[in-house]
Amino acid sequence: MPDYPIRNPAIVLVEDEPDILIILHRLMRDLTGGYDIVTVSGGAEALAQIALRPVPLVITDYNMPGMNGLQLTAAIKETSPDTRVVLITAYATPELEKRAREQRVDYYLPKPFPLDRLEQIVRDVLS
């Protein structure tokens, strides 16, 4: 038996705005039975969580201090290529969308987005 705790798979939410993080957490909690919902405020914390447990889905903001959502996606895809990434941004441009595709972002959601769109993405990824 391993000498460390077995951890449930997690959905990691990365957002530096506490109010948005709370909304995302509530939405994910209601959608995802059997998954831990982990909230972090930056990319380094998200990568630490991915190193600890299976993470099928990361939902990240684009514009954050330290490491932006594209940099985080590149690091995730390097260490955990099967993890799906949803990038949400209030700074949507065609150029950013192109860069997101190049970094292998799985889903690109400009803010504001309908919550039912995010719910559908989560259901698709976890099914």
Results as ranks from 00 to 15, higher is better:
54 P>E: 14
38 V>D: 00
21 L>H: 01
47 L>K: 02
71 Q>M: 11
104 R>N: 12
17 E>C: 11
50 I>M: 05
80 S>Y: 02
47 L>Y: 03
82 D>H: 12
102 E>V: 11
56 P>I: 05
101 R>Y: 11
22 I>V: 15
61 D>N: 06
90 A>M: 11
125 V>C: 08
87 L>Q: 01
89 T>R: 03
102 E>R: 13
118 L>R: 10
50 I>S: 03
74 A>I: 10
1 M>L: 15
67 M>H: 06
57 L>C: 09
101 R>A: 13
33 G>W: 11
51 A>Q: 09
89 T>N: 08
70 L>Q: 08
5 P>K: 06
26 R>C: 09
71 Q>C: 09
45 E>L: 09
73 T>K: 02
117 R>N: 15
103 Q>I: 03
32 T>N: 08
90 A>I: 09
19 D>P: 02
29 R>Q: 12
72 L>T: 00
17 E>A: 10
50 I>L: 10
59 I>A: 03
16 D>C: 05
113 F>G: 02
70 L>K: 01
90 A>S: 08
26 R>A: 14
65 P>S: 12
35 Y>Q: 09
95 E>Y: 07
91 Y>T: 08
49 Q>I: 03
59 I>Y: 01
72 L>P: 00
68 N>Y: 03
66 G>T: 05
116 D>W: 13
51 A>C: 09
51 A>W: 00
113 F>Q: 03
11 I>D: 00
11 I>W: 00
66 G>D: 06
11 I>M: 04
54 P>T: 11
83 T>R: 05
46 A>C: 13
105 V>C: 08
92 A>P: 00
101 R>I: 07
1 M>G: 15
16 D>P: 00
113 F>T: 01
55 V>L: 06
72 L>N: 01
11 I>E: 00
52 L>C: 11
84 R>W: 01
32 T>F: 04
124 D>Y: 13
3 D>H: 12
118 L>H: 08
115 L>M: 14
48 A>P: 07
120 Q>R: 14
110 P>L: 07
115 L>H: 10
3 D>A: 15
6 I>E: 14
80 S>L: 06
24 L>V: 07
71 Q>S: 13
67 M>R: 01
64 M>K: 03
89 T>S: 07
67 M>N: 08
110 P>E: 13
20 I>V: 15
89 T>P: 00
27 L>S: 04
114 P>W: 08
57 L>R: 01
19 D>C: 10
12 V>C: 03
17 E>H: 10
